Computed example of a mutant assay.
Amino acid sequence: MSSADQILAQAEQLSKTTTAKGYAIAGDEDLTPDARQRGIDDLWTQAEQEMHQLRQQHDDAVKASERDAERKLVRPPSNDPARMASYRSALDRASSALSDGRLEAVLEEAEMIGDEDQALAAFTVGIRNGVQSVVQAFLADRPSRLAAYQAYAAKTDSRGRLSRSMETGMRLSMPYKPRPGDKPMF
């Protein structure tokens, strides 16, 4: 279970616990209606603060997961300082080629001469700027990168992100706040 999923589970538990406690306070005949309302209000204030923290933690966990997927996708094959310098230089060339409308040509040249750093840099710039022709051309002969790309796309796809966002929003929301005298709805 990912850390984002664990946070959602904590939010669901907080919601259930808060609801049960809220209804217990609402139905406590030993308390005056004002005391019940204060108890419910205090409980909800605390739970809303906790839920806000869980929302922030969830957002951070999702962003970290997306960054991790992107790093796995565009990471150069070596951490050698000289190789990293070559890759950074290749990224600069690919970025310049993008603004000149030549990113596809840069990828083709890199593939032709076997410059894997330049090809990866063109792919990276292509991903970041939505140049699907470059992304698809790069992935065509690289099944291991294709698997990493599919994992990355699953985490960052805007349609999937919206759907997950709506579901997550519901799971990270506070439940119905009972009033004094309310009976549990379940």
Results as ranks from 00 to 15, higher is better:
154 A>Q: 11
105 A>G: 05
36 R>Q: 11
91 L>T: 00
155 K>A: 14
56 Q>F: 08
122 A>G: 02
184 P>I: 07
142 R>Q: 10
83 R>Q: 14
13 Q>E: 14
53 Q>S: 14
151 A>I: 03
31 L>T: 00
105 A>Q: 14
164 R>H: 09
54 L>I: 06
128 R>Y: 05
172 L>Y: 00
20 A>I: 13
47 A>P: 08
116 E>A: 15
134 V>A: 11
28 D>L: 06
63 K>C: 03
104 E>K: 11
97 A>C: 11
185 M>N: 06
127 I>F: 04
67 R>M: 14
47 A>G: 10
15 S>Q: 13
86 S>P: 00
89 S>E: 15
131 V>W: 06
81 P>H: 02
47 A>D: 03
27 G>V: 03
140 A>C: 03
7 I>S: 02
20 A>G: 04
111 E>P: 06
32 T>F: 02
177 K>W: 09
41 D>K: 12
104 E>P: 07
109 E>R: 15
68 D>Q: 15
35 A>M: 14
160 G>E: 03
178 P>K: 05
39 G>S: 05
29 E>F: 05
24 A>E: 14
36 R>I: 04
150 Q>H: 06
55 R>M: 10
138 F>A: 00
100 D>F: 12
162 L>N: 08
146 L>V: 11
165 S>G: 11
1 M>A: 10
129 N>L: 09
108 E>Q: 13
4 A>P: 11
128 R>F: 01
18 T>C: 03
13 Q>N: 14
44 W>H: 02
120 L>Q: 09
44 W>P: 01
146 L>E: 12
176 Y>F: 11
49 Q>P: 02
162 L>T: 12
149 Y>D: 05
40 I>W: 03
182 D>V: 01
141 D>M: 05
182 D>F: 04
101 G>I: 01
99 S>N: 12
163 S>K: 12
90 A>N: 14
116 E>L: 13
46 Q>R: 13
144 S>N: 06
166 M>P: 04
68 D>H: 13
99 S>R: 10
140 A>G: 02
32 T>L: 08
101 G>S: 04
117 D>R: 08
2 S>N: 14
79 N>W: 03
81 P>L: 07
111 E>Q: 13
122 A>N: 01
118 Q>H: 04
103 L>E: 02
122 A>Q: 00
32 T>D: 05
